[in-house]
Amino acid sequence: MLLNIIKKLECQLIKTIYINYGFSPESIILIKSYPEFVYKVNYKNSKFILKILKKDKIDIERINFIKFIQKSIEIPKILLNYNNKLYSELYFDEYKLFFYLQYFIEGKDINYENNNNAIKYGRELSLIHIKSMTYKKHYAEVDIFKECIKELEYILEILKFINKKAYYSFNNILIFFKEKSLESIYYENLIFIHGDTHGGNAILAKKIYFIDWDDSKLYDKYYDISCFYWMCITLNRMNLWNLFCNGYQENYPINYTQHKNKILKMSILKDLKVFKYYLEYSQMIGSDLIKDIYITKRYNFIKNLIDQII
C-alpha cells in the first residue's frame, strides 16, 4: 500500500517537474520520507535535492529572505521555476503540496571528530546572521516559555495515552513554565535566522554550506546559537561549544555569560521540538519506537536545564 502511494507520488512529481522546469528527470530517488519527503533528482549532468512541503511552510517572508540570502551568501541555490518562484505546486490526490529543487553539492556530513569543523560552523553561521541584519530587523517581544508551553501541551496530549507517569512528570514542567512565563519575556532586535542549526543541516565541501531553510523565521539569533549548544550537551561534547563560539566570534561577539539563561531556555525549547517530532513519528508509523527510557531521559535532560536557570 505505502509503496504504491510512493510510486504514484513519484510519477506525479516527474510530470510536475516537466511542467514547471521544462525537463524530465532521468531518475528520482527517495532519500527520506519523514517529516517531509526528500528526493535526489538526476538530469544529465545536473543533480538536485527535491523536498516536498506542506502549505504552512510556504511563508512569503521566508521566501523573500531565502531569495535574499541566496544572493548574499554562497549556499546551494534553489532553482526558480517558469513562474520565477522558489516553490512549485504539487497536486496529489486531494492534497495541495509544494516542492522545491535545490542544486546538489558534492560534499559530506560534518564530522565533529575534527574539532575545527565546529569553528567553521560557528564562523559561517555568524556570517549568515550579519547578512540577515542588513535584510531586516524588528524590535519585538520574545516569550520563550510561552513557546515551550505550546510544545508541551501537544506532547502531553500524546503522553497521556502512552505513558501516564511521564504525563504527570511533564505536566509539572508545564505548570512551572506557566508560573514563570512572565519572567521569560524580553525584547530584542529580531532577524531572520536559519532555525535549525543543531550542528547538521549543512554540507561540508570546500566550506560549510547551510541547507534546509524551511524553519527560517524572524526571531532572536541566539536561538540558532542555542541549537548548537543543545547538540553539544546532548552528545556530551562541550569542547565543541567553546570552539563554535570561537568561530562565531571571529565575525560577531557572543556574550555567553550575559545570555546564559536565554541559551538554556532556548535549548529546552529545541529539545521539546525534537521530542515532539519523535512522538509524532512514532504515532504515525504505529510503533512503540518511543521507549520509556527515552522519555525519562528527555524529562531528566529538561529538568537539568531548568535547574541551571538562575
Rank of each mutant, 00 (worst) to 15 (best):
N242P: 01
N304Y: 09
F65A: 12
G107R: 05
K67M: 09
I193Q: 11
D292K: 14
M238E: 14
Q283E: 14
N84V: 07
F99Q: 05
E106I: 10
N4P: 02
M231G: 07
K276D: 03
F161G: 09
K44L: 14
A118S: 15
F104I: 05
F65Q: 02
N163M: 03
N111Q: 03
F244G: 08
W241R: 04
P25S: 14
I263S: 04
N189Y: 15
N45M: 09
S27D: 15
D93G: 00
K303I: 15
T134M: 11
L50Y: 00
Y34P: 11
Y121L: 12
E151M: 11
K297W: 13
K165R: 07
N111C: 11
I203P: 04
I69A: 10
L204S: 05
M238L: 15
P76V: 11
I110N: 11
N300M: 14
K96W: 06
N239F: 10
M266F: 13
L80R: 12
H138N: 15
E183F: 13
N64K: 15
I69N: 06
D288F: 06
F145L: 08
L9T: 05
I110P: 07
I49D: 07
W230M: 08
S267D: 05
V38M: 07
E89L: 12
K55F: 08
C245K: 14
G199K: 06
I233Q: 01
K276H: 05
M266E: 02
C245T: 11
F210A: 02
I58H: 13
K136P: 01
S33W: 03
N246P: 01
N255D: 14
K44P: 00
S267R: 01
H194A: 10
Y43N: 01
E179K: 15
F23M: 13
I66Y: 12
K165M: 03
E61I: 03
R298M: 10
I310A: 07
S33T: 11
K270A: 08
P253E: 13
D109Q: 09
M231P: 00
V274M: 06
F48S: 07
L269R: 09
Q283V: 13
Y167D: 09
Y167P: 03
I63V: 15
I58A: 05
N115W: 00
M1G: 14
G122A: 04
F210I: 08
F145Q: 01
L9Y: 06
N42L: 04
Y294E: 12
K164P: 03
C232L: 12
L80A: 08
H198W: 13
F48E: 02
Y87T: 10
K164F: 12
V274P: 01
Y222Q: 11
W213F: 15
K178H: 10
L90R: 00
Q283I: 04
Y121Q: 04
C232H: 02
K55E: 15
K262E: 04
F92E: 04
S169F: 03
I14H: 00
D214A: 06
Y222V: 06
I63M: 10
E26F: 06
N300C: 09
V274K: 03
I52L: 07
I225K: 07
